[in-house]
């Protein structure tokens, strides 16, 4: 007699309990601020040391210089070479979101965001090119 009674008690309790599962596309899950998802790049900070490229376990990140054609400036008769500028290309299909690049970056140009909805029908759309403002400016000119 004890077992059916216990089962009934559990059943009645469950009638008044909140749902544990979330209705995902309708209600977004609460993502912790520590979560490691899509990598963000601050082009103005990058110095092109390539530590992120060397330590990337998935070979997903590329740092490419964008201002090879920029001419050096002359100040007081001295030629000063242009500051090197870089863009970052991350293949989101290869990236394993370990966050090693953000940890290793000496100037904190890379950081993890909480944007986890990255699925796409097109493979090319997964290549995330984070341009330096210099590129867009030089194109306008």
């Amino acid at each position: 007699m004890a077992r059916p009674l216990r089962a009934w008690r559990e059943l009645v309790k469950n009638l008044f309990r909140k749902h544990v599962t979330g209705q995902y596309p309708h209600t977004k899950p609460v993502i912790d601020k520590n979560y490691r998802a899509k990598i963000l790049f601050d082009a103005n900070k990058c110095i092109g040391c390539n530590i992120c490229v060397r330590n990337c376990p998935a070979d997903a990140i590329k740092i490419i210089q964008v201002n090879q054609d920029e001419k050096p400036t002359e100040v007081d008769g001295k030629t000063i070479p242009a500051k090197r500028k870089f863009k970052c290309v991350i293949d989101l299909a290869k990236c394993v979101y370990c966050g090693q690049c953000t940890d290793g970056c000496p100037v904190k140009a890379l950081s993890s965001s909480q944007d986890f909805e990255l699925a796409h029908f097109n493979r090319e759309a997964l290549i995330d090119e984070m341009k330096h403002p210099y590129e867009t400016e030089s194109k306008k000119k």
Partner: peptide
């Protein structure tokens, strides 16, 4: 799920925690 929530909060991921670095934790 409770345990996974705790792990997500500590490490930043539910399954591959990536907490280790050579010489300590991240």
């Amino acid at each position: 799920e409770l345990v996974l929530d705790a792990l997500e909060e500590i490490s930043g991921n539910r399954v591959h925690y990536s907490m280790n670095s050579i010489g300590g934790v991240r």
